[in-house]
Simulated scan of single mutants.
Amino acid sequence: MSDDKTSRTANILDVARLAGVSHQTVSRVLNDLPNVRPVTRARVEQAIAQLRYSPSPAARALVTRRTRTIGLVTPGASDFGPTSTAMHFNVAARAARYSVETVSSLDADAAGVRSIVEGLLRQRVDAIVLVVVDADVLEAVRGLDLSIPVVAAASVARRSPLIVSIDQYRGARAAVRHLAELGHERILHLAGPQRAPDAIERVRGWRDELAARRLEVVEPLHGDWSAASGYRLGADLDVAPDSAVFVGNDHMAIGLMSALRERGLRVPEEVSVVGFDDVPEAGYLYPALTTVRQDFAALGELIMQKVLVAVEEPESATADTPLPTHLIVRQSTRPVTR
Rank of each mutant, 00 (worst) to 15 (best):
255 G>N: 06
73 V>K: 02
119 G>L: 02
46 Q>C: 04
48 I>T: 09
235 A>F: 03
176 V>Y: 00
74 T>E: 10
124 R>L: 12
106 L>W: 07
238 D>C: 05
126 D>L: 03
112 G>H: 01
226 S>G: 05
304 M>K: 05
77 A>D: 12
158 R>D: 15
9 T>R: 06
337 T>Y: 02
285 L>C: 03
175 A>W: 03
157 A>V: 12
61 A>V: 04
126 D>P: 00
81 G>L: 12
178 H>W: 08
125 V>T: 08
118 E>P: 00
127 A>E: 10
48 I>R: 01
251 H>D: 15
74 T>C: 10
84 S>E: 15
158 R>Q: 14
4 D>R: 01
314 P>T: 13
79 D>N: 07
145 D>A: 13
119 G>T: 06
143 G>L: 04
222 H>C: 14
165 S>T: 14
234 G>H: 07
86 A>W: 05
15 V>K: 01
245 V>T: 07
174 A>K: 03
303 I>C: 11
33 L>M: 14
245 V>L: 07
151 V>I: 15
321 T>Q: 06
219 E>L: 10
74 T>G: 04
169 Y>W: 03
95 A>M: 10
175 A>N: 02
333 T>H: 05
248 G>N: 11
265 L>W: 06
278 D>I: 00
277 D>T: 07
111 A>S: 12
28 R>P: 00
276 F>N: 09
209 E>Q: 10
119 G>V: 02
99 S>V: 05
122 R>T: 15
108 A>T: 15
137 V>Q: 06
274 V>D: 09
4 D>S: 07
24 Q>Y: 08
203 V>T: 12
109 D>Y: 02
211 A>G: 03
61 A>C: 01
125 V>A: 09
168 Q>N: 15
270 E>Q: 14
26 V>F: 07
201 E>H: 00
51 L>C: 08
208 D>A: 12
210 L>F: 09
152 A>S: 15
161 P>H: 06
297 A>S: 13
89 F>T: 13
3 D>P: 01
47 A>K: 01
